[in-house]
Design a protein around this nucleic acid. Sequence first.
DNA 1: CACTACCCGTAACTTTTGTTACAGACAGCT
DNA 2: AGCTGTCTGTAACAAAAGTTACGGGTAGTG
Lengths: 239, 239
Amino acid sequence: MQIFNSSGECAPTDFSQSVPWLAGLKPGALAAFAGLCQSKSLGEGQSIFREGAPCNELYILESGRVKCYRSSLEGREQVLNVFDRPGDTFCIASAFSTGRHIVSATAVTAARLYVLELDDARCLAHEQPSVMLKMLIAAGNQMNHLAMLAGDLSLKTVTARLAKLLYERAIKHGVRNGKEIHLRRDLLRQEELAALVGTVRVHISRALTGLVRAGGIKLSRQTIHIVDLALLERLGEER
Amino acid sequence: MQIFNSSGECAPTDFSQSVPWLAGLKPGALAAFAGLCQSKSLGEGQSIFREGAPCNELYILESGRVKCYRSSLEGREQVLNVFDRPGDTFCIASAFSTGRHIVSATAVTAARLYVLELDDARCLAHEQPSVMLKMLIAAGNQMNHLAMLAGDLSLKTVTARLAKLLYERAIKHGVRNGKEIHLRRDLLRQEELAALVGTVRVHISRALTGLVRAGGIKLSRQTIHIVDLALLERLGEER
DNA sequence: CACTACCCGTAACTTTTGTTACAGACAGCT
DNA sequence: AGCTGTCTGTAACAAAAGTTACGGGTAGTG
């Protein structure tokens, strides 16, 4: 695990390429925005912030992958959100409400972030309603995801949640029957799957072979082959 | 269960009293806002919207209590949010992202709502950044709640979640050691507690007597007496 | 007051989930 | 190739959560 860290003001041109939702902004406003942002590099596995710490920044992903999670005293982890598309904005919740982080965030891969001071974000909100609206939409998406997650955690079985996860991943990457999901390439060890689905590693192993027997997937070395997407969807919806 | 329903435009004066977060608005803006809102009455138990339905409104609570929840095919229910303070705004997530409801909402008690068309809400966002900011804060609070809930569902035991619920309720109502929580008055049957905590009725019964034995609470007819608030807090934090 | 419907406590049982342990497979390294 | 550390599959066990059933209390109703 490398740790390296650099920061500095960033140029407006960076944004236009890597933050889609700023596209509609006038050049002047964009420059102003850029002037407020710090750029930050993170090494793989590096912590961004931890549960309980005071929060006065907003983060915009430039590249890489970041996870937000909560963890128990015993060391189990529940991933709440994964951000991997440039422009993904996180920490909206804490930033605009409590002032304290309620989750932890870590760079899963090496990553680059734009960091926006909270006070500046609030100013921006007043001056650029369209930006604010984008943030509200982002917040909405994340809320939806969390609402689904919470519901599923309480109402669905581990196998169903896993099937759903695989189904959604397949859809997201445009994978159809017969294609595969590269686990290793996506940094998805069973441990990671477990944290996403809300269980422990061993159970993932069992559930995966369960899905194999059901005919939804096939397993080989580092990949999961999607055999029957419709079946996965169905299994993910029932309990 | 009575069902009655009425609606019509509402006067600006309503707002100033029942929606605290509109306080800072200029009279003109307030009037404009009021003009956009419909008022709606709901009977106890009446459904407001259901999971999967298209969503093009935003709701502001005037009075009463509303729950947002997801339910399984077998009929179990996971409550995600409860809104009971005038001015509480819900459905922000669906409104500003997917356009489809991802949860269901029902009036727990008789209730009155202001209903704002989504298009109008978006306009409002542009014209009244301060309103938008308030919404973002509301969204932030709700996200925080959901993140906590999801984490707790996966990482904590039922008893811990229940202890935490009781602790938070006590704090919210300013209840100290020796005081009580009126269940019946708050419409909290064990069935409700179960849906809040993410389990089944029977388990709540067991967990409650567990908390009694631990010395955190005492039970009598329709009330829970808080015996040791600090203990409840502790039990709610550990696993 | 008596009846009824609903709610709660408890118990026995089943299913699901988490824990511990261990051996085989694989990847990366020297 | 051989070594090492990490990841995976399996099994046996323990704990937590869900299911079904039932009797007893209480509030509300006629």
